Simulated scan of single mutants.
Amino acid sequence: MHPSPLQDRFGRIHTDLRVSLTDRCNLRCTYCMPEQGLAWLPKPQLLTDDEVLRLVRIGTERLGIRSVRLTGGEPLLRRGLPGLLARMAALPSAPELSLTTNGVGLARVAPALAGAGLHRVNVSLDTLRRDRYQELTRRDRLPDVLLGLAAAQAAGLAPVKVNAVPVRGVNEDEIPELAAFAVAHGYRMRFIESMPLDAQGAWERERMVPAEEILERLRERFALEPVPRRGSAPAEEWRVVGTGAVIGVIASVTRPFCGGCDRVRLTADGQLRNCLFATEESDLRALLRAGADDPAVEAAWRASVAGKGPGHDIGGAGFRRPDRPMSAIGG
């Protein structure tokens, strides 16, 4: 079948689905959650593998979803992940499959993930200094992450993307260092402006390092030339002159790209979110467990996207933080 576009009232067509597989994480990053962690979702509330697969199938077959990114929490904590990936890759309208991870357990499973059909991986890494990594994440796991990056590259999960969130007074001094590390190893570096999605509600705009400052710091080390933007891709990219290396900056706050957004998000407990900052959700899990057929699930999905707003309006008078933190929404 040829699905009609999943379109909102502003004409944006949605082809990218983010699927959170768990809200749990094996790190306790200071900008994300408290040291003791959070109240995790009980297992019966989580979507089963069959339910995840059915929703991905409906998305690809009936709604025109072309890419699926698996997120968390930490998605590598999901039991049987390679098997679930293999089932997604075997769908008649199989999407491009990618995964965002903290990289702690990646070295162990990278070959299996690639063999199951995963195409690409993004690894979160905010510092190259072991003491600072332990301070930021409350875990001494930097060597494991570095091994994971190398294993992903060796397994063919390329380009391996490295995501860093600079925070003023924390790690903004490492912007050139992180970029140089990625260039040297053949990874694709991306810097992301911090957003008000922490569980503690402690985000302060003053501590966010804006895109312009990130670029200023990069130009201290590199000569950069702009790369034409690809469709609705969130990252503005620059090529390091004289090399094939590309560095991206995602200016979610200062230069929002909401006008071209093509994403929808599915939480680990089956709630569909039409925006990262949505304050309402559509309960697809309840539909599945009540025996709804595919057309009914499709209709609920389309209704959710039809109600999507124009943008997040961070800093505006009408901005409201979502009730869930990033770890429970999925990146």
Rank of each mutant, 00 (worst) to 15 (best):
D131F: 11
D131E: 15
D131M: 11
R132V: 10
Y133I: 08
Y133W: 15
Q134H: 13
Q134D: 11
L136R: 03
L136E: 05
R138L: 10
R139I: 09
R139A: 12
D140R: 09
R141G: 06
R141A: 14
L142R: 08
L142M: 08
P143A: 12
L146M: 05
L147Q: 15
L147C: 11
G148F: 00
G148E: 02
G148V: 00
A150E: 13
A151I: 02
A152F: 01
G156L: 02
L157F: 02
P159D: 03
K161L: 02
K161M: 04
V162K: 03
P166W: 04
P166A: 09
V167R: 09
V167I: 15
D173S: 13
I175G: 00
E177I: 13
L178D: 03
A180C: 06
F181L: 10
A182D: 10
Y187C: 06
R188P: 02
F191M: 01
M195T: 08
P196V: 12
P196F: 12
D198K: 05
G201P: 03
A202T: 14
W203I: 03
E206W: 03
E206T: 10
M208T: 01
M208F: 01
V209E: 00
P210K: 05
A211R: 02
E212N: 09
E212L: 10
I214V: 11
L215G: 05
R217P: 02
R217M: 07
L218P: 09
R219A: 10
R219L: 01
E220Q: 15
E220T: 12
F222Y: 09
A223H: 14
L224S: 08
E225V: 14
P226T: 12
V227N: 06
R229S: 13
S232I: 06
S232H: 14
A233R: 07
A233G: 15
P234G: 07
A235P: 09
E237W: 06
W238N: 05
V241N: 06
V241I: 10
V246E: 00
I247S: 00
V249R: 00
I250D: 01
S252D: 05
T254K: 13
T254Y: 13
R255A: 15
P256G: 10
P256M: 06
C258I: 11
G260K: 06
R263Y: 10
R263L: 12
V264M: 15
R265E: 09
T267R: 10
A268W: 14
A268V: 12
D269L: 04
D269K: 08
Q271R: 15
Q271A: 13
Q271H: 15
R273S: 13
R273P: 11
N274Y: 09
